[in-house]
Design a protein around this nucleic acid. Sequence first.
RNA 1: GGUCUCGUGGCCGAGUGGCUAGGCAUCGGUCUGCAAAACCGGGUACAGCGGUUCGAAUCCGCUCGAGACCUCCA
Length: 492
Amino acid sequence: MTHPTIYIYNTLTRKKEEFIPVNPNHLGLYVCGPTVYGEAHLGHARPYITFDLVIRYFQHLGYKVRYVRNITDVGHLSDELAGEGEDKIAKKARLEQLEPMEVVHRFTESFHENMRALNIKSPSIEPRATGHIIEQQTMIREILQNGFAYESNGSVYFDVLKYNEKHPYGELSGRKVEELYENTRELDGQSEKHNSFDFALWKKAAPEHLMHWPSEWSEGFPGWHMECSAMSTRYLGEAFDIHGGGMDLIFPHHEAEIAQSTAAHGKSSVRYWMHNNMITINGQKMGKSLGNFITLNELFTGNHATLKQAYSPMTIRFFILMAHYRGTVDFSNEALQSAEKGLDRLMKGIETLDKIKPSDSSTIDVPAMREKCYQALNDDFNSPILISHLFEAVKMVNLVLVGTEKLDATSLQQMKQLFSDFVIEIMGLMPESKDNPREGKLSAELINFLLNLRQDAKKNKDWGTSDKIRNQLTDLGVAIKDTKEGFEWEWK
RNA sequence: GGUCUCGUGGCCGAGUGGCUAGGCAUCGGUCUGCAAAACCGGGUACAGCGGUUCGAAUCCGCUCGAGACCUCCA
């Protein structure tokens, strides 16, 4: 099977590179998943939607995809005080008087619900850090044996200086070890480390620490960056195609991953590093630490002071796809509303296709449009360009309906396939049924009855009655659209 | 302070040397009893200054402004 050439921007080289899979016709992709200690917010949606587009496109092209996205349920320190830092999850658990695994379970479920709502495909494997302690310990041993780590007071640290003698440290983030000397902040508990920029592979647990496992070094827990190295190797091998995640993970997380893998196996396992940019709000990064985030559930319900209305999952999805993944996206009600209307226009275009009767001839070159769509995606997954082509297609469809353009049976079928492939399958945009919260008070039959009554009134030029029905129903939340044939309506 | 990114029409957001991106809003038109909805169409923007070039939003320099990373972060 031959595939089109895909160009991917590789963070490592800072340019677009031709994608060549490690194994022909296969894609191995690892994406850093969430730390499940709180509800997912809008910022979390971005990488998972971005890489959902990636896997959907590769699958569309016929690649066999193995997509691994982890759940971090242990390990990342929450305090700046590295020495006394406690696990984020353990901390939350203590605050809420819950077992750590209870917290993990709750927010994992919530995360999954959000992902499902956004029509994000489930990964092939969703490994958990706590389920791979053995693998992480094994890898730590390899790094120790290769001389790139040292034990100190029950903890194991990565020896950045020693590593840097043989392999360049800082390639991905563009940092140099000499600069790290100047720029790394002095933290407590640094005495165990040879250098401030050394990072923990294994951490000895404090007595009150709830999550810990036995090891030859200490009763403790794995360091911040081990899980991704260990689990990506376990499920994708020592060389795989793409590793993705948010830009904020480049340093130190992904830099550390490269160092760990190289220290253990002699080479980095990743061919292409892909990083999505951040979502901003008022020009600032949306994030937990700044407290300026809006959770996905809040978006879906409109239940947040900043929100002027609720935004459906597909609106969020479309909003994110309207920008290229490497640019920032600034949140605003105006931008979301614009996305909502744009999406509506796109989906209406698909509905319009079903109303079209094929002509004898065609004035539209559908295969050429399709080719343009492929080109957009092949160029580093340029979804905004793809969307602009699809809007062109919508315009064509509308012009066919009006009679300005023509589609024969073959072209009509090709056009339907175009939308089905690119909108539904690849971009993952699903038609959404509008909520009808007033259904309890108003039934569809009753509305139809009233509108038929209005039709009769209109025939008799009884505009008073006709407008009264229209105005009343409008006030009750029914959007009436008069058409040539009669009327249509929907919940507003 | 160090490293890096960005500044596009009312708003969002593509585009990297010459060819109308697109969406939302607005305005005009079609349709309609009037509306609404829908559809069609118009408007030529690229922070400022200087340079390279036949030609720059696109390359180079400077200035101003915004942001990211350097600590957990998607």
